[in-house]
Amino acid sequence: MFRILQAQFLAPDVKRFTIEAPRIAKARLPGQFIIVRVHDRGERVPLTIAAADPAKGTIDIIVQGIGKTTRLLNSMEAGAQIPDVVGPLGKPSEIRQFGTVVVIGGGVGTAIAYPTAVAMKQAGNRVVSILGARTKALLILEQELAQTSDQLFVMTDDGGYGEKGLVTDKLRQLVAEGRSIDLVLAIGPIPMMKAVAEATRPLKIPTVVSLNPIMVDGTGMCGGCRVLVDGKSQFACVDGPEFDAHQVDFAVLTQRNAMYRQVEKEELEEFEAMRKKPGSPDFCRLGMQNPQAGP
């Protein structure tokens, strides 16, 4: 059992957890992830480690409630126990002095990019961060990234905060201004990562993306997370999750991530209907009353 020490919403349906997991806290490096199972009939879901404190033996994860399991997780509060947390999984980010690193975080992908941005800064890089979100309310970790970045830009779809536009608009602007960029790290929704890859490809700027395919065990055993990279099959859980953006076949990733969309949708609808009734079995399994959704 893994105890939740802190839990607070950062944005609607986006919650940050501090979890007691001493072995993982000690072993973890930026870019790595965990797999959790929230109850004894739950599915296994991968979540990136946003931060860790080896001295306190804790790790932080930031969870967006998009499916049944992540919404169940986001209903848990400090003091609750998560039955299964395993990690750190995947290869860590390659951290060294590149020069200028542009870190692009889209939506909750920012939580994945954040620890790598910190490590890049510590390794002596100039870090320029571009955060993208649909609206201001969905923006996370802005202050934390501002502290670790030499420069930070915020892009919103509605222009209600920062600048109106896409992260790629800002990236192109930086290039047009003649900034020298040695590495781009882009983590967010697949269309965003694909757009960044297409923007940097003609410029030959090395670009890294962190992929989020469907995963089961996370140790290389099942091959469910296979992605096409440079025409070859790679397992995101052991060969990744970070890959050369210019070699990734995003179409195959998008197609494979749709594999359970229908059943996921049905599960979520059923869950949302159940959570309104007292004593829904999923919450009983978490040992709690039906809680309210986040703010």
Binding site: R41, R44, Q255, R256, M259, Y260, E267
Partner: peptide, 28 residues
């Protein structure tokens, strides 16, 4: 890489370990 192609490990893990066939288990 088509949807519907599994390794035996993945298919059997989903069914045996994660009981994907049972309604009250969440793994699909």
């Amino acid at each position: 890489h088509l949807n519907g192609v599994y390794s035996a490990n993945e298919f059997l893990t989903r069914v045996n370990l994660l009981k994907a066939f049972a309604d009250d288990y969440d793994q699909p």
